[in-house]
Design a protein around this nucleic acid. Structure first.
Lengths: 288, 288
DNA sequence: GGCGGCGATACCGCACGGGTATTGGTCGTG
DNA sequence: CACGACCAATACCCGTGCGGTATCGCCGCC
């Protein structure tokens, strides 16, 4: 007998429906997002609950909330849907005539490393086309999980590398970026507490995993360009890896922050990847 | 807008069908395994191929074979189905009144370590019931992936830890186990090539990931009890971690094999695990 | 050439997923 | 306190699509 049978599994449709409801916490809006009417959605969730023998949502007439089991399913269902999506995408790409490999990294980060890597890999014998996909913070992990990309450059501890194979490429200290002429700008170094303590320059708020910005005083930013613009205008400051220095203009000042956690650039790929191109890319990267 | 929508995803039913066909390479047998008739299965696969725009199987009247893309989908689909199964299982267990945690390890391996771990963890404040699931070689990884267990003890390099978070617990050298009185048994140590070179005692064949045994001369074994029995009978020898010594009888002899790869016992868990029990168990294990 | 094995096609019936209309329950609010 | 707003659940209907049976087409082999 070959590998155990998967019988009676939940369908991806049901998981999609549940994720929509769990994220919206509102059947009507979830139905709208799924381009369907509310009643069949309600029924589908009920059916899912009956099948699992588990109450997933706590409904009151006024609000809908996740139960403990519901939030477990939300997390697991996202992973499962990502895996299904990855299966679909990787199969399509495996069938495409031109092989190619997709690499993701946060826009603006590790520029120099990336260009060195791309040049070195292109010089390798048997190298294939590398499509670089620039994306916002927090995104690369999910792009890797759902098969949109084959390999990514991540930055610990900003990005989480859980569930991927990784190789460390480069470690660097962080610096605080200030508007030129700011009182703290001529210090030899600053500590994290000093940066956090000063109140005239708020720290920016990056979007979280869910796409929403956390609450707080600072301005909302989506990329480094926005960030550096705001800093130049004297509206913010930020602690960033020192390699971003070459993207600064002369109306910026930087001060080392020795006690900020060091940032390690890693190359990451799905653990079960069998792609020769990914393997070559990783090997090239570690040899830089 | 909250996280990207998963629209138009393949259903798990289609993936299950494909996996069955891909494993059997025979529509009739696959249909039988799925408890359905062959025609709807053929149609479902055709439909899947149309939806993906990819040829998955190469059919001739006499044989069915996987295409390149098909074998990619087989691997990815297994992972996706495991993820779906895990979602289902973990949700059910999250809803169960008695929490508990399930730990898997290969039967007979790491006995001493396991019992120390269980005792130490039981003494922790706030510890929950630990159900130990003993399983054959190669199994623990999939048990962890499909949610049947929460945490596992694995042995590198025998087991692959790809895709899990791990902590190393213990490293040990390997020894060769021989029948007592065997000519090589009184050597101070042996090299791997010497073990492989001798022909009177074949090495055993363990079942592979697919449940089948590889071809070769040695006897097929499924666990250490069988193995040691065969060795005592003078029908085999084997290179195993030295901690298995205490399971040997006095009709066995062991000789160190210094150049065999060291075996590291690791504790592994799904990277996204949020379970306090798993975290406690891991913490306890690393402190042993 | 005929038979056997295997996948594809043709056709049918029903179960289920989805839609509309409506109800029931629970808050705010005048 | 009654009324309306809001939201999920229920009732009912319809069409699609999945699964079943019967059969065909194709190929390899006695």
């Amino acid at each position: 007998m070959v590998s155990a049978g998967y019988d009676e599994l939940v369908e991806t449709r049901e998981l999609r429906y549940f994720v929509a409801v769990a994220e919206e916490l509102h059947f009507g809006r979830a139905a709208q997002r799924l381009s369907m009417a509310q009643p069949p959605l309600s029924r589908a969730i009920q059916q899912l609950e009956r099948r699992l023998g588990v109450v997933l949502l706590h409904r009151t007439a006024r609000a809908t909330a996740l139960t403990e089991a519901g939030s477990v399913l939300l997390r697991e269902a996202r992973l499962a849907l990502d895996a299904v999506e990855a299966a679909e995408r990787r199969t399509r790409r495996a069938a495409a005539d031109q092989p190619g490999v997709v690499l993701a990294t946060k826009a603006g980060a590790s520029r120099e490393l990336l260009s060195k890597l791309l040049h070195a890999y292109a010089a390798e014998p048997g190298s294939v086309a590398v499509e670089v996909m620039l994306c916002g913070p927090g995104e690369p992990e999910s792009l890797l999980r759902n098969g949109r990309t084959d390999v990514a450059l991540l930055h610990r501890p900003y990005d989480t590398t859980a569930g991927f194979d990784t190789e460390d490429l480069h470690t660097e200290q962080q610096v605080v970026v200030l508007p030129k002429g700011h009182p703290l700008a001529n210090r030899a170094y600053l500590s994290l507490v000093e940066v956090n303590a000063q109140t005239d320059l708020p720290l920016p708020r990056w979007p979280g995993r869910d796409g929403g910005h956390p609450d707080g005083p600072g301005p909302q930013v989506r990329d480094h360009t926005q960030l550096f613009q705001l800093i130049a205008l004297g509206l913010a400051c930020a602690v960033v890896p020192e390699s971003l220095r070459d993207q600064l203009r002369d109306d910026h000042a930087i001060v080392p922050v020795p006690d900020a956690p060091a940032v390690t650039t890693v190359i990451a790929w799905p653990p079960h990847s069998r792609s020769k191109a990914v393997a070559d890319l990783v090997r090239t990267a570690t040899r830089l």
